[in-house]
C-alpha cells in the first residue's frame, strides 16, 4: 500500500504543468506509450484481439504529465 495519495483533477495538473513550463523556460516533449485492451475470441486456441490504446504524456524537466483524453484515441477506434 502506497502512502495515502490524493486524487487531483485536470485543472490542477494543467496548472502545475504550466508552472513547470514557465519555470524551466523550455519546450516540453510530447511522448506516447501504447497499451492495449485485449479480448479473447476463442479460448481454446488462445486467439485474441487487441485494440491499441495510446496514452499521451508531456515531459517537462523530467516529469511526465499525462494528457490522454477522449479525442486522442478516437482515430483508432472508428
Amino acid at each position: 500500500m502506497a502512502p495515502a495519495t490524493p486524487v487531483v483533477d485536470r485543472e490542477a495538473v494543467a496548472a502545475t504543468l504550466q508552472a513547470s513550463k514557465q519555470r524551466n523556460r523550455q519546450e516540453c516533449e510530447l511522448k506516447a506509450l501504447t497499451q492495449y485492451e485485449c479480448q479473447f475470441v476463442d479460448l481454446e486456441s488462445n486467439r485474441y484481439i487487441c485494440r491499441p490504446f495510446k496514452r499521451l504524456f508531456e515531459v517537462c524537466a523530467g516529469t511526465s504529465y499525462e494528457t490522454t483524453a477522449q479525442p486522442t484515441n478516437s482515430a483508432d477506434r472508428s
Partner: peptide, 14 residues
C-alpha cells in the same frame, strides 16, 4: 508512472 509524474488512474475501458 515514475516518482513525481502526474498520471491518469484509469483512462482505459473504452
Amino acid at each position: 508512472g515514475m516518482p513525481g509524474d502526474y498520471i491518469l488512474v484509469d483512462p482505459s475501458d473504452s
